[in-house]
């Protein structure tokens, strides 16, 4: 009897986890829309054009991670515990966009758009005329770096963080800005398609940029970890999800801002080095092939 009620409680707790704390139509439409477009694109591709299993799994995982941290119980914990909030931003700004950009989903997503819609967009020259320069301006190496680190610093400014946690509209602006900037940055890092509008940076430049954003993140993360004052009073003001010492919460939050975030730069650099070696080998093969013939 007690076993039965225990397991039914576990099931209802498990299901309760998937009830969004702050339901958002915009997030729901974006997430399920992206997955729908992607699978429709895959369906319409020939066997030769299809990406491998790796990119498909990476893309789906990245998109689902974004859903998980914004439209489940996880979002509640993020609002009422600083270190979980840092975990949420680690996913939104680093991990999920990293996986999505690495999967290079653009050709698949483009193929997934129904033909009439694509034809309509193709006719809207003005849209492209606005979007392309704005996008290319945002994707300049300096701007991309400043945005990437600047947004972390901006939302972690204690006064701004306070208001963002108190006002739901600002909270959504914060999370969207992190997710979109994460996509921009990692897209720039991992772009290797042909004929896109993303500026093609040299591999050396990319590795350099990854280290350029790593250093300030270490400084921000370490400052929070070693701070001896409680900088983020809003979590005390609003109450924590469960009783936890405020300084412990802040220390763990600082460590999450510091170590896994910096590690993502290292992992990103390793991925880019792999592209580099692969491309060099391909170029070498191309150069030597005619000579041998």
């Amino acid at each position: 009897m007690s076993d039965c009620s225990y397991s039914s409680r576990a099931v209802s707790d498990f299901l309760a986890f998937f009830v969004p704390w702050e339901f958002s139509w915009l997030v729901q439409i974006s997430i399920w829309g992206a997955l729908l477009l992607y699978f429709n694109g895959l369906r319409r591709m020939s066997a030769g054009e299809m990406p491998g299993y790796g990119p498909i799994i990476g893309f789906v995982l990245g998109v689902l991670l974004m859903y998980l941290v914004t439209q489940t119980r996880f979002d509640y914990w993020s609002q009422y515990m600083f270190f979980i909030h840092r975990g949420q931003h680690l996913v939104l700004h680093h991990l999920a966009p990293f996986l999505i950009a690495l999967a290079m989903p653009a050709p698949v997503l483009a193929r997934g758009i129904p033909d009439p819609v694509r034809a309509w967009f193709a006719r809207q020259g003005w849209l492209r005329a606005i979007w392309v320069p704005v996008y290319r301006w945002l994707q300049q190496p300096m701007i991309a770096c400043i945005l990437f680190v600047g947004l972390i610093a901006f939302w972690l400014t204690p006064e701004i963080h306070f208001d963002a946690m108190l006002n739901l509209t600002l909270y959504w602006v914060m999370n969207w800005s992190m997710a979109l900037d994460g996509l921009l940055f990692w897209w720039l890092m991992f772009d290797r398609g042909r004929g896109g509008i993303t500026p093609r940076l040299g591999y050396g430049t990319r590795v350099l940029l990854l280290f350029a954003v790593m250093v300030p993140q270490i400084i921000i993360g370490a400052s929070i970890t070693f701070a001896d004052a409680n900088w983020f009073e809003v979590y005390a003001v609003c109450g924590r999800a469960w009783p936890l010492d405020p300084m412990t919460d802040q220390h763990i939050g600082g460590l999450i801002t510091w170590i896994p975030a910096a590690m993502m730069s290292v992992v990103g650099a390793l991925v880019i080095l792999r592209f580099w070696i692969y491309d060099d080998a391909a170029q070498y093969a191309a150069r030597t092939a005619p000579a041998r013939a």
Partner: peptide, 8 residues
Amino acid sequence: YRTTYGYE
């Protein structure tokens, strides 16, 4: 009021 509470 965007606050919460929890039990140990």
